[in-house]
Design a protein around this nucleic acid. Structure first.
Lengths: 170, 170
DNA sequence: CTACATGCAAAGGGTTTGCACGGGG
DNA sequence: CCCCGTGCAAACCCTTTGCATGTAG
């Protein structure tokens, strides 16, 4: 599942971000780096720019592949993804069975994911109300909420029909 | 963080399950195994019983440690955890940074987790309303919802005060 | 008796680290 | 110039797999 689904993580509701949006976000990233005392390197900017161009979810390996002309190492990829996450430009999502996936925060309000456990596809949904509830709950527990993970695991419409053949291919 | 937090995954809202509840659940597991054509082995019953005794979250390694007298292998642990999950007696939870954690479904209605990204502690909260919303959303997308993941990541009350020392210890 | 379950050890995949070189401030 | 950032490869952790033996049905 993991392997074949890797490149088929299609989403509903993804949208490309216009170039000016990307440029602005990269500038924000530079800003973040300087303010934190990190160096602004060409590698980091390559990565940031490429990350922001992904319309949907991507893996570290996807990003590495998309940057192969620049011969960026995985170590650097992961380090920079972490920085971008701290800068608030990126979200990391963990889905069952597959490795971490990332998504740019650009042009994406908070949303949840419906993950099909059979075909691996991910459908995004608007979760304004869900998140509002979470904020209230977190507050009641003295928690400062920084990030929410809202997922529904199950079968997508398509897989519901062809289901029952096997539950896990082992 | 992972290592030192591993044994401090204390929860609010955990509760031990009375023996009769455990016995009944083990019986349900046996039933599940037979109906699916799996064999009812003593190893599987040891594991099931021990799993159901955990009051909170535990890792595969925790379970292995708790069963060391029985010399159960990790391979079997993982296989049986998967079976228990299919039997609906167990939930697997993925939290950022640490490996998978499991929790028995016994005596636990659906709930969400507030995870402190600093100390690793997990606070459970009742998420009846959140889940109801998710069910509606999933339905609207043609999804059959089988499981929900509802997490808030942030700082717990305690860490909010002592925060700002380091954001990541590396 | 037969096929599935088990323990052991070894492999696997994604992520992180150690090291010496290169480049930003 | 000095130190951080980088690529490379090796290490790492958790989880899964292959194989010979054990055991439920």
């Amino acid at each position: 599942m993991g392997k074949s689904a890797k490149s088929s993580l299609e989403l509903s509701g993804t949208r490309a971000v216009p170039p000016e949006g990307i440029a602005e976000a990269v500038a924000r990233f530079e800003d973040f780096l300087r303010r934190r005392g990190f160096k602004v390197t060409r590698t980091r900017l390559w990565i940031a720019e490429r990350v922001l161009k992904f319309p949907g979810h991507f893996s570290a390996a996807d990003l590495w592949g998309a940057l192969r002309d620049h011969r960026v190492s995985m170590a650097t990829i992961y380090q920079t993804l972490e920085l971008m996450e701290q800068a608030g430009l990126l979200r990391r999502c963990a889905f069952r069975g597959i490795g971490a996936r990332y998504e740019s925060c650009l042009g994406r309000e908070h949303h949840g994911h419906l993950v099909c456990r059979r075909c691996g596809n991910i459908v995004e949904f608007d979760d304004g109300k869900v998140e509002a509830l979470l904020v209230k709950i977190a507050g009641a527990h003295g928690f400062r909420l920084e990030e929410t993970v809202i997922q529904g695991i199950g079968l997508c419409a398509e897989c519901r029909r062809t289901e029952g053949e096997r539950w896990v291919p082992r």
